[in-house]
């Protein structure tokens, strides 16, 4: 475990905490895409099936359980909780995420490390994570205004991806057999998707102004 990986994981965890805080404190999920949250829940469920087959470390197991649990809790809140549900921007969150799921599954069948059920599922989760932020970014783009906590949430998610890239570069040079090219290529795509958001995030930070995305 290197410092980039650990900071990346902590940033990922922080992003989820910020989202839970927003939902819990304001009883509102405005600006948050339910589609993206559902995709994340699917990503974690598909990838962490190995929870039952290979043990890596206590840290690894605990983090996996936290990610699965929190993503399911967020989806549950947005669908079932009376007050939270009311604030959901349903008419802005219209991205057809089923196409993403189908496309990623097809790609995972074609491009994987080994044509075996757990490997195909792993590749599927990697591809799906890379694109699962698209409905969220589309929703923000459509609404234009981004409230403070939602902005921090998306920023932390993007930062987590950027730190993972540094982690791969570090591991590539320090470990003899480290070549996770599927994860690296998908990770690069995922981070690139945030580039536009980052640009406006830094602009608003520099000008000390409210974060606004051009429509």
């Amino acid at each position: 475990m290197n410092v980039f990986r650990l900071t990346g994981d902590m940033t990922h965890l922080a992003s989820i905490l910020v989202l839970l805080l927003k939902i819990y404190a304001t009883k509102s999920c405005s600006g948050i895409s339910l589609k993206t949250q559902e995709l994340y829940a699917l990503v974690f469920l598909a990838r962490y099936l190995n929870l039952f087959t290979d043990f890596i470390s206590v840290y690894n197991t605990v983090m996996k359980l936290v990610f699965i649990g929190s993503s399911l809790a967020i989806v549950w809140c947005m669908r079932m909780h009376k007050m939270v549900k009311r604030s959901y921007d349903q008419e802005l969150d219209t991205f057809r995420h089923y196409f993403l799921i189908a496309g990623c599954f097809l790609l995972a069948l074609l491009v994987n490390e080994k044509f075996m059920f757990p490997e195909v599922l792993w590749a599927f989760s990697i591809y799906l994570e890379a694109v699962s932020t698209i409905p969220q970014l589309v929703l923000l783009q459509r609404s234009g205004n981004v409230d403070n906590l939602t902005g921090q949430y998306v920023f932390l998610l993007g930062a987590y991806r950027a730190l993972y890239i540094l982690n791969w570069i570090y591991r590539y040079f320090t470990e003899p057999h480290f070549s996770r090219w599927i994860a690296c290529v998908a990770g690069l795509v995922q981070t690139a998707l945030y580039a536009d958001f980052f640009y406006y995030y830094f602009l608003s930070w520099k000008n000390n102004a409210k974060l606004q995305l051009p429509s």
């Binding site: 990986r5 057999h177 994860a183």
Partner: peptide, 10 residues
């Protein structure tokens, strides 16, 4: 064939 290392990332 080199066995691929366990997938230890989250």
């Amino acid at each position: 064939e080199v066995e691929s290392p366990p997938k230890d990332e989250l």
